[in-house]
């Protein structure tokens, strides 16, 4: 592995190969909880983009000054502060979205993805590539959420971003409920796996 990966590869890793939702299974709580509607998924995604990018940047900036023993508490304080700031901004400017995300907004603090990236990437890399890593991971996360939310909202409530597409009689409302999240996510993961397996066997053959 090259000592310093290119920014592009850093960025695209999060989006596809190391997608936090479908490959790494990081931050699954919100993955399942807020994907009842595309709007919520986008809102959560935006929140994660903000927190992850800034957290990665800050952690990377201070990486050489932080004593190893207390790095995790320090990361947590930074992330928690960022989440608190995010919470306050969202409550102030998009109160409806903040209300529908509910506790999960605060729970960005404990999203494994964020602490995981701070620990695994930002603490060893330069600020710029940390930003790209955060952006790639966060967007990959958002994409995953939106994909799940798209199917759940479309099939479960017949809408996409609130627009009615499927009439009420043909909706599978279990999908927008808690249980449905597992089903949709499970099916999607199996399909992603299928693609990955196919790729893998191709590369083995090649």
């Amino acid at each position: 592995m090259a000592k310093q990966k290119s920014l592009k590869s850093v960025f695209s890793a999060g989006l596809f190969k190391q997608n936090p939702v479908f490959v790494q299974f990081l931050g699954m709580c919100p993955t399942l909880a807020v994907t009842g509607s595309v709007e919520n998924a986008l809102g959560m995604g935006a929140g994660v983009v903000f927190v992850l990018v800034v957290a990665n940047f800050v952690v990377s900036l201070i990486r050489n000054y932080v004593p190893r023993e207390v790095r995790i508490p320090i990361y947590i304080v930074i992330i928690a502060s960022l989440v608190t700031i995010l919470e306050m901004f969202m409550k102030a400017f998009v109160p409806d979205l903040a209300a529908s995300l509910g506790t999960f907004l605060s729970l960005i603090v404990v999203n494994c993805l964020i602490l995981g990236r701070a620990e695994a990437f930002a603490s060893n890399n330069k600020p710029l590539s940390s930003i790209f890593d955060g952006l790639g991971m966060a967007l990959g996360f958002t994409g995953g959420l939106v994909l799940i939310a798209f199917f759940r909202e479309l099939l479960g409530a017949g809408t996409v971003l609130g627009m009615q597409i499927i009439p009420a009689d043909y909706q599978i409302s279990i999908l927008v409920q808690a249980a449905g999240a597992f089903l949709v996510f499970g099916i999607l993961v199996s399909q992603v796996n299928k693609i990955r397996l196919a790729r893998m066997s191709e590369s083995e053959v090649a």
Binding site: A178, A179, V189, N193
Partner: peptide
């Protein structure tokens, strides 16, 4: 279990069935 359903996917489907029961 089919390869692409192994691990997480089948666990999620199991969780789905359990969640239905808990409803």
């Amino acid at each position: 279990i089919k390869k692409n359903w192994e691990g997480i996917p089948i666990a999620l489907i199991t969780a789905f069935i359990m969640a239905m029961i808990f409803v």
